[in-house]
Design a protein around this nucleic acid. Sequence first.
DNA 1: CGGCCCCTTCCGGTCAGCGGAAGGCAAGTA
DNA 2: TACTTGCCTTCCGCTGACCGGAAGGGGCCG
Lengths: 248, 248
Amino acid sequence: MAVSVTSRALDLLGAFDTGHRRLTLSAMARRAGLPLATAHRLAGELHRWGALDRAASGEYVIGRRLWDLGLLAPVQSGLRHAASPFLHDLYAATLATVHLAVRDDAEVLYVDRLAGHVSVPVVSEAGTRLPMHATGVGKVLLAYAPENVVVRVLAGLTRVTPYTVTEPARLLTQLRRVWAEGYATTGEEMSLGACSVAVPVRGPGGSVVAALGIVVPDLRRGRARLVAALQVAASGIGRTLSCTSSVQ
Amino acid sequence: MAVSVTSRALDLLGAFDTGHRRLTLSAMARRAGLPLATAHRLAGELHRWGALDRAASGEYVIGRRLWDLGLLAPVQSGLRHAASPFLHDLYAATLATVHLAVRDDAEVLYVDRLAGHVSVPVVSEAGTRLPMHATGVGKVLLAYAPENVVVRVLAGLTRVTPYTVTEPARLLTQLRRVWAEGYATTGEEMSLGACSVAVPVRGPGGSVVAALGIVVPDLRRGRARLVAALQVAASGIGRTLSCTSSVQ
DNA sequence: CGGCCCCTTCCGGTCAGCGGAAGGCAAGTA
DNA sequence: TACTTGCCTTCCGCTGACCGGAAGGGGCCG
């Protein structure tokens, strides 16, 4: 196993996640599986550099320096930039929560989210990872993912709500419909009271680079209008990406 | 000086900045001041963990794992979340580029930005740091900053455009006006063709925690309307922050 | 072909990192 | 008050992980 200082320091950072934004030293040590004294020394070093900050309570939090380093990641610089204005248009037109997501291995990674004042119960925010089979953007991304990813996802269809699709055959049918109709939907499969529609975003080469989705309380009416709005936005993003593809 | 592995690894990450999003191994090594072989080993370790990714060209870029770690930083989780819907309203109402910024020592750190399709030349995006004396949000934050910060900023008024305020006395007068009138303005002081208005955002305790600004091509007309819209949004954000202050 | 630049791998000496142990502080319990 | 439990911090001597010069391999150019 890895016992290098570097990987230990990184594991210490890895102790933070969406549900653990502030950790005491001992909590970090425990989660990273490091002796307290070691964690103390490493955390001190990370803190000195700015990768960790200390809250007023003395707990550790991710530091500003890591925040702006993270913003340099290509996930966002290219895609998010190009998409930003279209997301607003979409929000203005639908007043629904808007999502932009990419596939990260066998999960959906939310790249941007745009929520209004009042919104249906939505778990995701930027940086969140969710299973592919229970979200609209996930189904879209899965439909255009390589074979081996599909196989892995199909092998692990965990139930999230009573409506989550857990039979591989049924999900495959849905993926085929994404191909045919150009969009995916969900109905309370991730969280109760939330339905979603999503469409693929195509990059310069015509390949699917992201998915664009919105979450609404109900899909029985206005579905066509939503799909149309999504597709306009998606193709707009695609065109913008083509223009700036030099930077990637 | 620090010669610990950890700090070297961090320095390697620090080689990336807004102007250097993709670096070859040797470029990283050069910028971090490390021997090539050492940089190679460390970069490999960072890559294995996901802190660095490799672009198709073989160059290194900041990895996704760092990206979502960064999103956990408190700069954003609290403030940005609370502000998000109000920023949209503001954008919808004004169609101007909207900025949310905090003070980071003696600089302005842009926390969020919301730009339309067509926009005046604006340099900032989320994660950018700019000097305080040449931006609207900067002047607001400076007006409510501790004495010693003001002193340091006044000591280093660098010129950015011909219109940048570089005389300490004149900037002080402007700061006093921020106090009196509750908002700050700039006129082509950071980039030509861009004017701005900004107001403070007050947190639970009444202290100024951030600044909210918009950038427009011209301030001669409609200033009052813009200030009013900004103040509505700012007080909305403040109220939201109070509600969720338990999380901080 | 030779020159250039980049990336990658190797290996033994040595010094940075390790972590158990001990001490200090703050809160809760009796 | 004294005891417990939980944190954080510091110390120090042993040791194995890190260091980095050197050598080798690929791609590109003239």
